[in-house]
Simulated scan of single mutants.
Amino acid sequence: MFARLLRFASCLVSAIAVPAHAGDVPVFAQRVTSSAKEIVSYPVGNPSAMTVVGAQADTLVGMDFNPEATVLWALDFTTQQIGTVNPMTAVFVPTATLQGPCCFNSFTIDPVSGVFYGSLDTNETVYSIDPLSGQSALQGVAAAAGWAISALAIDCNGRGISSASNAQGDERLFRWRVGTSAVLIGNTGHVHATSLEFDNADGSLYAWFGTTTSSTHAKVDPVTAQTSQESLLEGRYRMAIRSACPSDRIFANGFDPAP
């Protein structure tokens, strides 16, 4: 699968050079307001400097870049299709219809292995997804039993982070790896996370929390779940941070020394 994926991705490489350091890292996101759906871009950590790329009518509920940070992938919730988004025109091009359980509401790409992972909108399970066939396979859990995942992220050392809520409306962050049980991190103090993303250039974790009316953007500590640098903006957001993993931040066994 991965050889096919790499060949396919090479045909879709953006003409924009990959940023050299964190200060140059751009974020691409779908913003949904009461009057518009559009792809926007802003410098990582600074959504107040947002610019509009173009209109985007699809309902994208997951976005992430491939490991080389050259191809922007997205998941369309309404059609349950996976595909690519052109970061210069905002055009979404489906590559496959998702097969298996419904409905996938978030996904992330392992920035080292390139494996696509997705979660449903009803429980704690996580699946791998083949972006060219749409086939999915159950891989395990990314939250505690009885919690429904709304956002996923994976860092350069294979550490997964999820945001999930329970039937009472409580929301928590969990740490996960395929093949192991999810571990509770804590409470961010926010509800309805729509997006979690690591900036692979420096390991920072960012999130969007909110509804169609307004959302809070924040930097999140992946160890304590504490948030900082918060800002409130109109709309609901799903984002992807365009940065690749530096070689000195990838461990040979795929695990950070102190998970």
Rank of each mutant, 00 (worst) to 15 (best):
T188G: 01
Q226K: 13
T213N: 13
A74M: 10
F116G: 01
H217N: 12
H192V: 15
S34W: 10
G140V: 09
G23A: 14
L196K: 00
E171S: 15
G186Y: 04
T216P: 02
V53R: 01
S34L: 15
G158K: 03
N187F: 06
G189R: 09
N200T: 12
A143F: 06
S119M: 04
L132V: 11
C11D: 15
I250Y: 08
Y117E: 06
I154W: 00
A20I: 12
S181N: 13
T51A: 11
F28R: 02
A137M: 14
V61Y: 12
F65E: 06
A69M: 11
A74P: 06
E68L: 15
L60G: 01
V191S: 09
P131T: 07
L60A: 02
N157H: 13
L233H: 00
V40K: 00
P246H: 03
P87Q: 09
K37I: 10
G169M: 10
A22G: 14
G189A: 07
Q135P: 08
C102Y: 13
R4Y: 09
G83D: 08
E234K: 00
T194Y: 00
D248N: 15
A153P: 02
Q80H: 11
T89L: 05
A207T: 08
S34N: 15
N105G: 13
C103E: 10
T51M: 05
R31M: 02
V71P: 06
A17C: 14
F28Q: 04
T122R: 12
F107T: 02
I149L: 05
I161M: 05
D76K: 09
P94H: 04
S215L: 01
A49M: 12
F198R: 03
T97Q: 15
S204I: 03
R159I: 08
S34M: 13
S113C: 10
S163A: 15
G83W: 02
A96Y: 07
S165W: 13
L120F: 05
A142F: 09
L98S: 05
D256W: 13
N166L: 08
I241L: 07
V61I: 14
E171G: 06
L205Y: 05
